[in-house]
Every structure is written in C-alpha cells, then in structure tokens.
C-alpha cells in the first residue's frame, strides 16, 4: 500500500482529526499515569521498589513526550497539550487518573499490570501504522514496556501468594477493573480539531462536529466515526474491539490463575470470543469522551500549579526533537 499519510501539510481535515485523536489518547494515558506513579516516590515499600516504579514513571513521561511530539508536525506544541489544555479535553482512560488507595501497593501493581498488558497490545497494533512517525516510535517504547509488564507480573505473583496480599489485590481489582475497560473505548475527537482548515471537502463534517458537540449522542457518533477513520486510514491496524477482546483473553486467565475473581459478567462472553467489553461493565466516566472523575481535575490543578503561579508562557524542553 502506498502510504497516503506522508506529509502532514497535505492531510485532509478527517486525517488530521484521526491522527490527533489517536495521538492524544496515547500520550494522555502515558502522561497521566506517570504523574500518578510519581506519587509513590519515597513512599514505596522498599528503596528498590521505589526506584523501579520511578524508573517506569520516567519511561512513561518520555513516551508521552514522544507521542505529543507527533503533533508538533500539526503545529500543536507541548505547551498547548499539557499546560494550556482544558482538562476536560484530555482523552486518557479513567484507569490512569484515579488516585491510589492510600498506601496500597497492590493498587499500584495491579493498575500497572492492567495498563501495561493493554499497552503491549496497542503498540503491536501501531507497529505497521501508515503514518511513519508513529511506527518509528513503537520500537523504543516497546523495549521499555517489556520491563514494566515483567515488573508488574512479578509483583502480582508474589503479592498473591499471601492471604493479605491477595485480599488487597482483590479489592483493587474490583475497584479498577471497570476503569481498565475504558482503555478500549473510542475517544471523542478533541475540540480544537473542529477548527476548519483549508481543506474544502472535509468542511461538511467539521461543521457537523462543531454544531452538535453539545449532545451526548453526537459525541458518541463522532467518537465512533473518528475511531473508524483511525483504522481505515491505517493509523492503527487493529480495532479497539479486537484489542479489548485480546486483552481480556490475556488478563482474565492470568488474574484467575492468581486466585483472583475478575469482575466480568459471564454474559459478556460472545460468539467466537471469550470475553468482550460491554456498556454495562463500564464506569460512569469514561475518560476517553472527556468525562473524568473529580480526581483528574484536582491532579491537573496540581500539575499545572507552578506553571500558572510563575506565569510561564512556555514549556521547558531539554531534549532535542526525536525525529531529527
């Protein structure tokens, strides 16, 4: 297939919107999870586990930066993406924004397992992305993610050996699992992509998108449409549904092998698939559609506090452009 997605300046409005939506969901997940992980610094159960999680947090921040940088070619810079963005315009899953249950290492470990297992699958589906800057980033990110997944699995196995550890894991699983399912929800296209570009043929859709964003229904439609585009344009080579089913077929048996009860309804087992993500099993806030728990808005306030306090107008950059 000759790649139609070589030069971002030639993108149609739809292509641009698909790319921006995809990259935001990727980058926002990594960015917000890293923010949460850093809360464990100097509080983890041992020096070693502290350093290991700090290492993972730093990796995730680096990955967020790699993803956000993809949008630099669309003239969206890091300042706009992190410090100047409406927190309701973030597209991360609610799994990554929830505060950790006080001092609960089981929460940190389980969350990282649920997330890293999903990330592994979605990176695989980006390896052959039609947009080269995406495909180019996968190798570096995956090599670091292997450590994260291994780290999480090792901890889970050990915590699950004792009764107290297993009880804590079960509590965390009951709390986190519905939120983990939002990882596979389609994301509502970000608001700023609705700004018309010079592309004339896409203008109908842009208007439809801006005019109707007030209603939930049209948001959901727009999300489904842009998700369809992400796959049709070859930005990602698997659908969210496929990723969700595959993820369930990996994490459910693993967690069950640790004697944990996965809160998934037997009725979600469909034809030909073992499990599927259904509406009933999802939490009220999905994250991907811009609805978030209060915890996210508090966290956003925290992480932009210094920037606002010091009246900054720029985000500091200490690394060069990864594409150069």
């Amino acid at each position: 297939m000759s790649s139609p997605l070589e030069n971002p300046t030639d993108f149609s409005a739809r292509e641009r919107r698909a790319l921006e939506t995809l990259v935001k969901r990727l980058g926002d997940d990594e960015f917000v999870l890293a923010e949460r992980y850093t809360e464990w610094q100097v509080r983890a159960p041992s020096l070693e586990s502290d350093l290991a999680l700090a290492n993972n947090a730093q990796d995730e921040l680096g990955h967020a930066r790699l993803w956000y940088d993809v949008l630099a070619d669309l003239d969206v810079d890091e300042r706009d993406l992190v410090y100047e963005r409406d927190p309701a315009d973030f597209r991360h899953s609610t799994l990554v924004e929830l505060p950790f249950a006080e001092g609960d290492w089981a929460d940190a470990v389980l969350r990282s397992y649920l997330y890293d297992a999903a990330e592994d699958l979605r990176l695989e589906a980006l390896e052959d992305s039609a947009y080269p800057p995406i495909a180019d980033r996968v190798g570096k990110i995956r090599s670091e993610e292997e450590y994260h997944l291994e780290h999480a699995r090792n901890w889970l196995e050990r915590l699950a050996e004792g009764e107290e550890g297993r009880d804590r894991l079960q509590d965390a699983l009951d709390r986190l699992f519905p939120h983990a399912l939002t990882l596979f929800e389609s994301a509502t296209p970000p608001v700023e992509t609705a700004i018309p570009t010079r592309e004339a043929s896409g203008s109908n859709e842009i208007e439809r998108n801006t005019d109707e964003t007030s209603g939930d229904r049209s948001d959901a439609d727009a999300a489904a449409a842009v998700e369809g585009d992400i796959v049709d344009f070859g930005l990602r080579t698997a659908t969210l549904e496929e990723l969700g089913e595959e993820w369930l077929s990996i994490v459910v048996p693993f967690l069950e092998s640790l004697d944990l009860d996965v809160p998934i309804d037997e009725s979600t087992i469909g034809e030909g698939v073992e499990y599927a993500v259904t509406v009933e099993s999802l939490p009220t806030q999905l994250g991907r559609d811009g609805t978030h728990t209060d915890a996210w808005f508090d966290l956003y306030d925290d992480l932009t506090h210094t920037y606002r306090e010091l009246e900054r107008s720029d985000a500091a950059k200490i690394r060069e452009d990864p594409d150069r």
Binding site: L51, A52, Y147
Partner: peptide, 20 residues
C-alpha cells in the same frame, strides 16, 4: 547490592538500580 525476596526480583531491581 539490592534487597529482593528472590532471584527474579533481584535481577529486575538490579537492572534499574545498577544497569541504568
């Protein structure tokens, strides 16, 4: 050195603490 409950975890911690 690293504190770890077993060889697997020790290798993992060492990778971050001494190999980074």
């Amino acid at each position: 050195n690293v504190h770890a409950p077993d060889r697997e975890m020790a290798k993992q911690f060492a990778a971050v603490q001494h190999g980074r």
